[in-house]
Design a protein around this nucleic acid. Structure first.
Lengths: 239, 239
DNA sequence: CTCAATGAACTGGGTTACCCAGTTTTAGGC
DNA sequence: GCCTAAAACTGGGTAACCCAGTTCATTGAG
């Protein structure tokens, strides 16, 4: 068991250090799933931080479903996947070429499936929800569209028609990450704009309830996307 | 903008109610990405809760990358996907037949890909990491294995060999969720045990660096898994 | 000897009042 | 107008409280 005062790395919060320590407890086998944690007061004394810090850490873990807090009854470990704050921060900061390709690879994996399922299961209302951003995409860019990305809405609507909320949620999460400003510098924006018509065959296949065609069209779309990645040589030259 | 005191639903924390309100601010367009939040003191007065509650909420969002806190400089919205605590809790609690199928559908989508990629990219060390739990799986169940699920280790090792940390992470997350005790009652455990030999063809295809075969073997594995789902009629009769 | 009632000790939830160091903003002086 | 210095503000953290619900050991009745 870890004792002694905390010394978070610069830029890191005490509560994040506490989460790391909780992660260590799990890794070292001192805490198994469904085991009860020492009380706030005990941890406060052991780690020499105020209860506020302890509670911030547990609250974050509780919202992620890793820990369950029972008022008056203590806290319990519910999952052995305790997130590592430092690792999360690192993943968020580095927005390189490699990271974008990994993001796209994951998106392609999931979205080929959502397109396939949408072709099987989409209701007329859901089809309309997919068609709507498509019309916005064709229209000339206007001020009203500044904060509503039709591209994102299109992919989101397909995920929403796949009938699997979990799948939908993961796609939505990846889409949000794709929007990170750090990635924008890696893309040839003109090529990206030229890619917009590619959305139509995806919709057509879904509307025609043709799963195989929908998957294929989505695959082609992601292949085209990879073509918009600025060449590394150009990136180096730009510096 | 929302004023007035908070009234969290029973069993819900004040900080979760605060997160919900922050989510509302984003939904209603009062907070855009990169916008600065009102200070702790202002929100404290507006929502009539203590700073502790405000800070617990923001800390949870910060760790998830939704918010960035700059000591002395305020807090900023970094993503428009503010999680809904009530929704998360609901998703976690309901462990029905439908949820398990959705979980498996998502796992199949991702793990067919990780198997394919592992067949392309796995190093000798990674192959060994996949083979190890396979040997444990063949051995008779012993006390030492009580807390190390070889099945989970096997799937995890394949994900670890796919060369995409993001994909690996998502698979690891889904595997942890699959372990939820609520799902155990839905499974025919004898059928599940009989399914173990199915892991071998997956490993063989990966070891042979045959992506198509690896994908196909993983697909068959998940088809077999679906056969272990207890029939709804039996479930009703058991009550 | 068993078992249920009881009450003390403990646990998490929440509040208030502080102090600190870094960032913004503002007001002054030039 | 422009730069500087001070004041105001912001998030980070601590300490001492109070509350309501849970745990658990003790105790007293059967």
């Amino acid at each position: 068991m870890i004792h002694g005062p905390l010394a978070p790395a610069p830029g890191q919060r005490f509560s994040e250090e506490v989460i790391s320590r909780i992660g260590q407890l799990v890794e070292e086998g001192e805490m198994r799933v469904d085991a009860r944690f020492p009380s706030e007061r005990v941890l406060e004394a052991r780690w020499r931080v105020s209860r506020l810090v302890i509670r911030e850490a547990f609250r974050a873990l509780e919202i992620q479903g890793v820990v369950e807090s029972r008022p008056g009854g203590g806290r319990y470990l519910r999952s052995d996947r305790v997130p590592d704050p430092a690792r999360l921060r690192r993943l968020r900061l580095e927005a390189g070429r490699e990271q974008l390709l990994q993001l796209w690879e994951t998106r392609e994996t999931l979205e080929c499936k959502t397109a396939e399922l949408a072709a099987e299961r989409a209701t007329p209302e859901q089809l309309e929800a997919i068609a709507h951003p498509l019309r916005l995409l064709d229209a000339p860019p206007s001020e009203a569209l500044r904060h509503t990305d039709p591209n994102r809405l299109f992919h989101l609507a397909i995920a929403g028609a796949c009938g699997n909320p979990l799948l939908e949620d993961m796609v939505a999460d990846l889409l949000a990450r794709s929007q990170a400003t750090g990635f924008r510098a890696l893309l040839e924006l003109e090529d990206l704009a030229a890619l917009q018509p590619e959305h139509h065959p995806i919709f057509d296949a879904i509307a025609a309830h043709d799963p195989a065609a929908a998957r294929a069209a989505m695959r082609r779309h992601f292949e085209g996307l990879r073509g918009c990645l600025r060449a590394p040589a150009l990136l180096a030259a730009a510096r």
